[in-house]
Design a protein around this nucleic acid. Structure first.
Length: 423
RNA sequence: GGUGAGGUGGAUGAGUGGCUGAAAUCAACGGUUUGCUAAACCGUCGUACGGGUAAUAGCCUGUACCGAGGGUUCGAAUCCCUCCCUCACCGCCA
């Protein structure tokens, strides 16, 4: 949610930034300004009437005590007239407020100054690359073939039990998931992140707080009987820990990490890009989240990017870091860095992490604030990133490390997996 | 799922339909006293949205808010209805 004061005071800037994000309905900015003016006018009018009837009600109380019955009755009649006016103004005000907020929640976050221009993934900026792309043997195959060969995941039975895109991990495939998530969590907690296990379903308030509603509502599984959403990422429940909370300045930054299953409908996806583990409806991910002081958030974002980079490096995977252009960023983000690992057999980059600073956008919606030393209350900044999403990491690990009889695992995983290779 | 109790400011906890935006205590903050700490004493101490003035500090002022939403009334924290949540016991259950 954008700050109404910013829209009021600097509409030109807001419009320019929205255009940078390739947002089409720039006219929303002017519509909000008009509604805001009207809203304030109505509130002023209503407050005046309410004030009069409050004063009259008090006067009646006094008159009753003094036994001046007739004067009291006369006053009552007066207030009766005001009630009509009050009702009318209240209805108008509520309607205008509703209209204003309906539009306001559709406005995405403004991109930060460093966000490159552009409207398609090709215009994302490569910040840096690392690792070495392996040269695979002539008979190298994509991960879905390796998965079959080593019997790691049974997609067909997963489809029978639930539907396509719900993998059934099995044997060493299941153990590898456990090894990776344990390793990621240990890596994060060693860096000062507190570990959480959050609920996997959330209510509408939480989904709204992090910006999934209304923007991504169709992407979430919804349980109508209980009005709950399956989480698309641990970001939603974990960030919402601090919804409607006023923190102390000394509490910041708050660093949290959580493993969760993630559920995404991915409606409309099809084709070769969704084969195997490239795109699934249920997957495992470890997330890192920070609640930060506004002055520190961009520095902390850099630290989070560096943190994820070390994690990817430790897996010995070739990777690159992208700074997303305005048109490719998420609804709630002010700036986003994507991590991609090289999938050698598919000859393509796979996104495994997205690290973003949401600045005050989520905090405004969630009413997450802190009291500064001076006693002033202001909203925090929120940040999060994957550290890491498992399926595509598995895909890259399998493909890049295939060597005839087995698949070699990076050193950091040996103790977690209980073996240096899969065979 | 059933029954009972309850939801009041950072915390504990009063509150008879008007004098209660809300007692009291604690915590917190500022100050006095003090060699330092403690104690004592004095003061401050909710949020949101408006309006005025002013330097985006501050000050003055209006409205709303005592779980949420409705209703009764000239007037509701207080009465009525619906819903939500918490706790306890029972039932069911990994």
């Amino acid at each position: 949610m954008l700050d109404i004061k910013l829209i009021r005071e600097n509409p030109a800037f807001v419009k320019e930034r929205l255009a940078h994000k390739q947002f089409k309905q720039i006219e929303f900015v002017d519509e909000i300004s008009v509604l805001d003016t009207e809203r304030r006018r109505l509130q002023q009018e209503l407050d005046t009437v309410l004030n009069q009837s409050n004063l009259a009600a008090k006067a009646i109380g006094g008159l009753m005590k003094e036994g001046k019955k007739e004067e009291a009755e006369a006053k009552k009649a007066e207030v009766g007239v005001m009630k009509e006016k009050e009702k009318e103004l209240k209805e108008k005000l509520t309607a205008v407020e509703q209209q204003q907020s309906d539009i306001a929640i559709q406005l995405p976050n403004l991109p930060a100054a460093a966000v490159p221009a552009g409207n398609s993934p090709e215009q994302n900026e490569v910040v840096r690359e690392g690792g070495i792309k392996p040269t695979l043997p002539a008979d190298a195959v994509p991960h879905w073939d390796l998965i079959k060969k080593f019997d790691l995941i049974d997609f067909e039975t997963g489809a029978k039990i639930t539907g396509s895109g719900f993998p059934l991990y099995k044997g060493k495939g299941a153990k590898l998931q456990r090894a990776l998530s344990s390793y990621f969590l240990d890596f994060n907690t060693a860096a000062g992140y507190t570990e959480y296990i959050p609920p996997y379903m959330v209510n509408a308030d939480s989904a709204y707080g992090t910006g999934q509603i209304p923007d991504k509502e169709g992407q979430m599984y919804f349980m109508p009987a209980d009005e709950l959403y399956m989480i698309p990422t641990a970001e939603v429940p974990v960030t919402n820990i601090y919804r409607d909370v006023v923190l102390k300045e000394s509490d910041l930054p708050i660093k949290m990490t959580a493993f969760s299953q993630c559920f995404r409908r991915e409606a409309g996806s099809f084709g070769a890009n969704v084969r195997g583990l490239n795109r699934v409806h249920q997957f495992e991910k470890v997330e890192i989240i920070q609640i930060a002081h506004p002055d520190k958030s961009h520095q902390l974002l850099d630290e989070m990017v560096a943190h994820v980079e070390r994690l990817v490096q430790s897996l010995e995977l070739p990777y690159r870091i992208l700074r997303l252009c305005g048109g490719d960023m998420g609804f709630a983000s002010a700036i986003t860095y994507d991590f991609e690992v090289w999938s050698a057999a598919q000859q393509r980059w796979l996104e495994v992490s997205s690290v973003s600073n949401f600045e005050s956008f989520q905090a405004n919606r969630m009413k997450c604030r802190f009291k500064s030393e001076g006693g002033k209350t202001q909203v925090v900044h929120t940040l999060n990133g994957s550290s890491l999403a498992l399926p595509r990491i598995v895909a890259a690990l399998l493909e890049n490390n295939q060597a005839g009889q087995g698949i070699h695992l990076p050193k950091v995983l040996h103790s977690y997996f209980g073996s240096p290779f899969i065979d």
